[in-house]
Simulated scan of single mutants.
Amino acid sequence: MVLILLPPSEGKTAAPKGQPFELSELSFGQLNEARQEVLDALAQASSHPEALAHLGVGASLAAEVERNTRLQAEPAAAAHTVYSGVLYDALGYRSMTATQKRKADAAVVVISALWGAIGFADRIPAYRLSMSVALPETGKLAAYWKKHLPAALDGRADGELVVDCRSSSYAAAWAPPAERSVVVNVFQERAGKRTVVSHFAKHTRGELARHLLTRRGKAPATPDALLKAAQEAWWAELVPGTGRKPHALNIVLRD
């Protein structure tokens, strides 16, 4: 089985109704004490008069920040429903077959500033929090989770090919074994010159995740097999890792 690491979306789609989340039902239960600490710290920070500044957001997101103060009472839904935006639209969970959805639920782990790491089918409320934020009780969240995630994720990644589609701030929270990890980069090439474009990178990473979850045949178990799978849909190259540096899959979008 391949392990696909995704970042959360900045925007979330709130569940219109339903029961609140239960910590005991989330994947990686060994993170629950740390999750509760962040939940409490976020609620306190979000009720502060300077909450918007503390969380690094503008006035248009005041309602989402206020919702952070009552997350344990908010309706919850599966993570693949709550997370939305470019990457998740491209992944297209809703249009998958039942078999493909089961594969996604088993293969995808989302690295989160609030939860640390969660499974794709875990029930969560919509929230507003970035990994780059520093809460008074926890400090910078990337550093906070870096202390806790290895105990939960090292075993999950054991023997798996890790396809890392995270952005840099979320990648800082946990480093999977380099020899079995492939970071996904996306470039646009025009007149022989490559540039990085974040919008297309998110979209293409979502498309790659969907391709891996919906294609026929065995899931890639090695970086070379991942390259071949990616080349079924894109021009791609593999840059081998060195020592503690993971492999890199470069997908090049050409005009």
Results as ranks from 00 to 15, higher is better:
residue 193 K to C: 02
residue 140 K to R: 08
residue 99 T to Q: 14
residue 73 A to D: 11
residue 240 P to M: 14
residue 72 Q to M: 09
residue 44 Q to G: 09
residue 105 D to N: 13
residue 235 W to F: 15
residue 168 S to Q: 12
residue 117 A to P: 00
residue 140 K to A: 11
residue 250 N to T: 05
residue 166 R to P: 14
residue 167 S to Y: 07
residue 218 K to F: 06
residue 245 K to N: 00
residue 197 V to L: 11
residue 126 A to H: 03
residue 180 R to T: 14
residue 30 Q to F: 00
residue 19 Q to D: 13
residue 167 S to E: 06
residue 75 P to H: 06
residue 4 I to V: 14
residue 124 I to M: 02
residue 49 P to E: 04
residue 223 P to Q: 10
residue 224 D to T: 11
residue 128 R to I: 04
residue 128 R to Y: 00
residue 127 Y to D: 09
residue 35 R to Q: 08
residue 181 S to K: 03
residue 39 L to R: 04
residue 39 L to H: 15
residue 93 Y to G: 00
residue 110 V to D: 00
residue 46 S to H: 10
residue 26 L to D: 01
residue 46 S to I: 12
residue 171 A to M: 05
residue 25 E to S: 15
residue 139 G to D: 14
residue 18 G to S: 11
residue 199 H to D: 06
residue 23 L to I: 06
residue 204 T to H: 04
residue 92 G to M: 02
residue 215 R to E: 10
residue 254 R to K: 15
residue 130 S to V: 08
residue 20 P to L: 11
residue 48 H to L: 02
residue 176 P to Y: 01
residue 212 L to F: 10
residue 184 V to M: 02
residue 3 L to P: 05
residue 72 Q to N: 14
residue 34 A to Q: 06
residue 91 L to S: 03
residue 176 P to R: 02
residue 88 Y to W: 12
residue 138 T to G: 05
residue 250 N to S: 04
